[in-house]
Computed example of a mutant assay.
Amino acid sequence: MTSWLGNDGNWIVAGLAAAVLVPVLSFGLGVPFLVSAIIAVPVFAGLVVLLAPRKLFEGMDVNALGRGRVAFARDLLNEATPSADRLRAVAGRIGDKDMTARVKHLADIASDVFARVEANPDSATTVRRFLSYYLPRAAEVAEGFAVIEAKRAPDQTQLGEVRSVLVKLEDAFVHYADSLADDELGSLDTDLRLIQASLKEDLRH
Rank of each mutant, 00 (worst) to 15 (best):
Ala80Gln: 10
Ala80Leu: 09
Ala80Phe: 09
Thr81Ile: 08
Thr81Met: 14
Thr81Asp: 15
Pro82His: 10
Pro82Phe: 04
Pro82Lys: 01
Pro82Cys: 13
Pro82Glu: 00
Pro82Ser: 13
Ala84His: 08
Ala84Trp: 11
Ala84Phe: 06
Ala84Gly: 13
Asp85Ile: 15
Arg86Cys: 10
Arg86Pro: 01
Arg86Trp: 07
Arg86His: 10
Leu87Pro: 03
Leu87Arg: 09
Leu87Met: 10
Leu87Glu: 01
Arg88Ile: 13
Ala89Lys: 02
Val90Ser: 00
Val90Asn: 07
Val90Phe: 02
Val90Lys: 09
Gly92Trp: 05
Gly92Cys: 01
Gly92Leu: 03
Gly92Tyr: 01
Gly92Gln: 05
Arg93Glu: 13
Arg93Ile: 04
Arg93Ser: 11
Arg93Trp: 05
Arg93His: 07
Ile94Phe: 07
Ile94Ser: 08
Gly95Ile: 09
Asp96Glu: 12
Asp96Phe: 02
Asp96His: 07
Lys97Asn: 10
Lys97Gly: 07
Lys97Pro: 12
Lys97Ala: 13
Asp98Lys: 12
Met99Gln: 15
Met99Ser: 09
Thr100His: 14
Thr100Asp: 13
Ala101Glu: 13
Ala101Val: 00
Ala101Thr: 06
Arg102Pro: 03
Val103Pro: 01
Val103Cys: 06
Val103Gly: 06
Val103Tyr: 08
Val103Ala: 10
Lys104Cys: 06
His105Ile: 02
His105Leu: 13
Leu106Cys: 04
Leu106Pro: 08
Leu106Glu: 00
Ala107Val: 00
Ala107Cys: 01
Asp108Ser: 05
Ile109Phe: 11
Ala110Thr: 02
Ser111Pro: 06
Ser111Leu: 14
Ser111Lys: 14
Ser111Thr: 03
Asp112Tyr: 12
Asp112Gly: 08
Asp112Met: 12
Asp112Cys: 09
Phe114Gln: 01
Phe114Lys: 02
Ala115Phe: 12
Arg116Ser: 07
Arg116Trp: 04
Val117Ala: 09
Val117Arg: 11
Glu118Asn: 10
Glu118Val: 01
Glu118Trp: 04
Glu118Tyr: 01
Glu118His: 08
Glu118Ser: 10
Ala119Asn: 03
Ala119Trp: 05
Ala119Leu: 08
Asn120Ile: 04
Asn120Trp: 00
Asn120Lys: 09
Asn120Glu: 04
Pro121Gly: 11
Pro121His: 09
Asp122Arg: 13
Asp122Tyr: 12
Asp122Gly: 06
Asp122Met: 12
Asp122Gln: 13
Ser123Glu: 14
Thr126Lys: 08
Thr126Ile: 14
Thr126Met: 05
Thr126Gly: 03
Val127Pro: 05
Val127His: 06
Val127Phe: 03
Arg128Pro: 00
Phe130Thr: 15
Leu131Asp: 10
Leu131Phe: 04
Ser132Lys: 06
Ser132Leu: 03
Ser132Ile: 02
Tyr133Leu: 09
Tyr133Cys: 08
Tyr133Asn: 15
Tyr134Asp: 12
Tyr134Phe: 03
Tyr134Ile: 13
Tyr134Thr: 15
Leu135Tyr: 00
Leu135Gln: 08
Pro136Phe: 02
Pro136Asn: 01
Pro136Met: 02
Pro136Val: 11
Arg137Trp: 04
Arg137Leu: 04
Arg137Pro: 13
Ala138Asp: 06
